[in-house]
């Protein structure tokens, strides 16, 4: 039992160290580094805000808050997926010459961007406070639940993407296009109820619709809608299982293609 305990603790150490390494590299040891990584979603938010409310004259109450409350969780998802498509190739030396669980590389990427997301929470809290929407005690329950759900879904997809990209080099570009498409197919910049009923079905088959809506429910109205969370959780379970299976199956021939 001792040896097993030791291995579990060592693996935990390894995962934390790999994550810490990525966080260190990302922030380059500067305080500004954290701000830089927040700048990305903030700038995107600004551009969308200008395009929609000023150019297209789309008017909606609290639109800034509405936008950012979805944009931050979305950024965690999209950056993880985009970055992890190159993770195995970027760490090719480790993969080829060192024996360790390769999925740790993917986990470390998702965790790194989770850290990034956590840094964006103060911004959301400030916005909620400014618009008089909270934060409330419900957040303490809702946020951890949604983090777990999104972590599972994101990890599943990242596992698939990373292993597929080792086999097909053009996967990276396909993923980039796909993520972009997904962005517009998810109610991030527009509310779901503005979508004409005929098209709403297409959004309903996109699992991210439920997840992003759940985030927004918590941030903007301190509401936990178990229906949305339940669907998101089920879907993330499917993605995670499939991701693990694919990663394991294709991983066995990784040395031949990479």
């Amino acid at each position: 039992m001792d040896i097993i305990d030791r291995e579990v603790k060592r693996k935990k150490d390894l995962l934390l160290l790999l994550t810490k390494k990525e966080v260190t590299l990302k922030y380059k040891r500067t305080v500004l580094g954290i701000l830089w990584s927040l700048l990305n979603p903030l700038l995107l938010g600004l551009v969308l805000f200008i395009a929609f409310t000023i150019f297209l004259r789309f008017h909606m109450e609290n639109y800034t808050f509405f936008l950012l409350s979805a944009l931050f969780p979305w950024t965690w998802f999209s950056t993880s997926v985009t970055i992890s498509s190159g993770t195995l190739i970027a760490n090719i030396q480790l993969v080829k010459k060192v024996r360790f669980p390769r999925y740790f590389l993917v986990l470390a990427t998702v965790l790194t961007h989770l850290v990034n997301f956590l840094f964006s929470l103060p911004v959301i809290i400030a916005l909620a406070y400014y618009y008089g929407k909270g934060p409330s005690i419900i957040w303490l329950l809702g946020i951890p639940i949604l983090i777990v759900v999104q972590f599972m879904a994101t990890t599943g997809i990242c596992l698939m993407v990373s292993i597929l990209n080792a086999y097909f080099r053009d996967m990276e570009y396909i993923i980039a296009v796909f993520v972009n498409l997904l962005f517009w197919m998810t109610p991030i910049v527009y509310p779901l109820d503005m979508v004409p009923a005929a098209y709403r079905l297409y959004l309903a088959i996109n699992p991210l619709t439920y997840l992003i809506t759940a985030w927004r429910d918590i941030f903007m109205s301190s509401a936990i809608r178990w229906g949305n969370i339940g669907i998101s959780w089920l879907v993330s379970l499917v993605f995670l299982s499939f991701g693990i299976l694919l990663f394991q199956k294709l991983g066995k021939r990784l040395d031949e293609v990479i």
Binding site: K9, R10, L14, L16, L17, T24, L25, V98, F100
Partner: peptide, 18 residues
């Protein structure tokens, strides 16, 4: 990353605890 940080990661990769 620094030598020290690399020692940590590689030591754990080679079977030690942190």
């Amino acid at each position: 990353i620094t030598g020290r940080e690399n020692i940590l990661i590689n030591g754990v990769l080679l079977g030690l605890m942190r």
